[in-house]
Simulated assay, not measured.
Amino acid sequence: MSDPLQGTEFFRDPYETYARLRSAAPVQKLTTGSGAGRPSYLITGYAEAREAFADPRLSKDTARFFAGQPSRRDLHPAVSQSILATDPPEHTRLRRLVAKAFTTGAVERLRPYIDEYVDGLLDEWEPGGQADIVADLAVPLPVAVICQMLGVPETDGPRVRRWSSDLFAAGQPQQIDAASHALAGYMSELIATKREQPDNSLLHELITVRDGTDQLSESELVSLAVILLVAGHETTTNLIGNATLALLQQPEAAARLRAEPELLKTALDELLRFDAPAGIATFRYSTEALTLGGTEIPAGVPVLIAPGAANHDPAQFAEPDQLDLDRDARNHLSFGHGIHRCLGAPLARAEAEAALLALFTRFPALRLAVPAQQLQWRHTRLMRGLETLPIQL
């Protein structure tokens, strides 16, 4: 099978493709651009995806997978050999070093800053005018928050965001590789600056761990900084944009949230399920042969888990293509599952709640400024997000 996870139509609406693939088999072999020419196995069924996320036979150690293979790529090791590409015990050690910064309690302490930043952004908007949800809210908010946490100067936010976006440019390997080097170079310089000018940022805490107890190598320190910076805003940007669009297209749901703002905490799970900010999870491969969803997967092949597809599996969620704010969607897979579940999920939720609540209460007449068919989606199979979302206030 040729790669079905490409093309403008897929990026605009992947769910028809996911449904067609799932109806054939919840786990199937296909040809994609991943895996150095090897066939890949795509998982679109919910039960199979949840099982795969927790299966230790599916490794994320990409360095081991590609060992000894010639490569035309030039990804910086800070990206190619990051915490996202490790298994226990390395993954456990690295995750433990940053986990405390993303606990529910730590995020709650950030809420005043988040709320104040959202209000400041929306204060710049003129009632009756126009704005772009992506450029004017969904991008600057999470970028500002993660930069605040890491101690990245706010003035560097725009170029950090540009490099981060380039990392997910489907079909543009040179652009991706260049962005990985730009981000790694930037974070190496910032680490050197913070060694000379200590502060109370998360990045300085990691530097202290590196220099004091030697729990981190220098390359691991740079890699953690890069991945926290990228992962700290990419998912949230897409979540805010996708959720806003879903609500704009379902005026009754938006009206309910205005009337019952307390509903948002639970409704956010349904918004995450309905249009997941990450369509396909990062790379895994089989360390031994296994059977999943009735399909035999040989050893040594890439395995792609598609939470965007799993969240629309009718075997798990009735009428999955309908947005239902009363649905219990807590078991969605938008943040993954198991030991690699998204570390920043509490932060992403807090930022999305603040943005959506302020947006729909302050601008009750909010509507799309262009037909939905004209909206441009990012050309990346990993991330599911809009390039722009123009709105009329």
Rank of each mutant, 00 (worst) to 15 (best):
S2W: 00
T8L: 06
D13G: 03
P26M: 05
V27T: 08
A36Q: 13
A36Y: 15
L42C: 01
A49G: 10
R50M: 12
E51Y: 05
A63N: 14
R64V: 14
D74Q: 15
A85V: 09
D87T: 11
E90D: 15
A99D: 10
K100T: 10
A106Y: 01
Y113C: 02
Y117C: 00
Y117L: 10
G120L: 04
W125S: 07
I133S: 07
A135P: 07
D136E: 14
L141P: 11
A144R: 13
E154P: 01
D156V: 05
S165L: 13
L167V: 09
Q174I: 04
A179I: 02
S180C: 04
H181L: 03
E189N: 10
E196P: 00
Q197T: 11
S201I: 00
R210D: 05
D211H: 05
D214A: 14
S219R: 10
L221M: 03
V222K: 01
L224Y: 02
A225N: 01
E234F: 07
T235N: 07
T235K: 06
T237I: 08
I240Q: 12
G241A: 15
T244W: 12
L245C: 09
Q249A: 08
Q249P: 09
A254I: 11
R258L: 07
E260Y: 10
K265P: 07
T266S: 15
D269C: 11
L272H: 04
D275K: 01
A281L: 06
A281M: 09
A281T: 02
R284I: 07
E288D: 14
E288A: 15
A289M: 09
T291H: 07
T295A: 12
A309E: 01
D313E: 02
D313C: 02
A318Q: 05
A318Y: 05
P320D: 05
R330P: 01
H332K: 05
G344L: 00
L347D: 10
L359S: 11
A365N: 15
A372S: 11
L375M: 07
E387L: 08
T388I: 04
P390I: 10
I391R: 10
